[in-house]
Design a protein around this nucleic acid. Structure first.
Lengths: 105, 105
DNA sequence: ACATAAGTACGATGGACGTCAAACTTTGAT
DNA sequence: ATCAAAGTTTGACGTCCATCGTACTTATGT
């Protein structure tokens, strides 16, 4: 188990990767829940409808796209939305997604 | 050949469909070129690197997502960006995509 | 009428991706 | 020491999708 997962730097963010991340409904739901909560959430505390191994996969995709930051607290892996950095790189993108999601689209 | 293709109404736009449309590099390039041109462009006048049949497929996906409007002029099929309607439905989304694209991400 | 131009329609194909189960690792609690 | 909790890793599987070539349609020009 890799205890210190690697995160991309802001300079490495790519639109392609971010779009590929948020195009999946499960991953978009994760982002939305993180955004709505306003605080970090453990992997197991999300309301998602897939198996644990699939969830791990989704978190990895989100992390590698730069959308979330992950760190361990005991056996739990916490997830933080990298909002500021995303907003700086792709202004309006995250807002557009979370807003549309909140409106039921 | 269907001469009057159907376009979705604004009320039918879905974030999922729009994201699925713009996640493809070729389709995103089409949107970007349309946005940059500021005028309608015929299918054949785009700078794309796929075959004609594949291009047709991409235009169809964009049309069904509500991103473009298509109409015939002679044998040419013109494409118009549905900017206003998109902006009203998903504020900031199109801007975020085209801006990031223009900045080379 | 005939030829050309511009797309469309229809399979077929190959690769990518979401999904899961099973086995494993690490940490914390009893 | 043991056990349970929380994720990870690996491999496999099915499906979806971007792509293409070929054949077809419609309109324009000669």
């Amino acid at each position: 188990m890799e205890r210190t997962p690697s995160h991309p730097q802001v300079s490495q963010f790519s639109l392609q990767q971010v779009l590929e991340a948020v195009v999946d409904p499960v991953r978009r739901s994760i982002v939305t829940q993180l955004d709505a909560a306003g605080e970090d959430i453990a992997c197991g505390a999300f309301d998602i409808s897939v198996s644990k191994s699939t969830a791990t996969h989704h978190f990895k995709v989100l992390r590698e796209a730069g959308l979330i930051r992950q760190y361990y607290v005991g056996t739990s892996r916490m997830n933080a939305l990298r909002r500021t950095e995303m907003d700086r790189t792709f202004p309006g993108l995250l807002d557009a997604v979370t807003t549309a999601q909140a409106k039921g689209r």
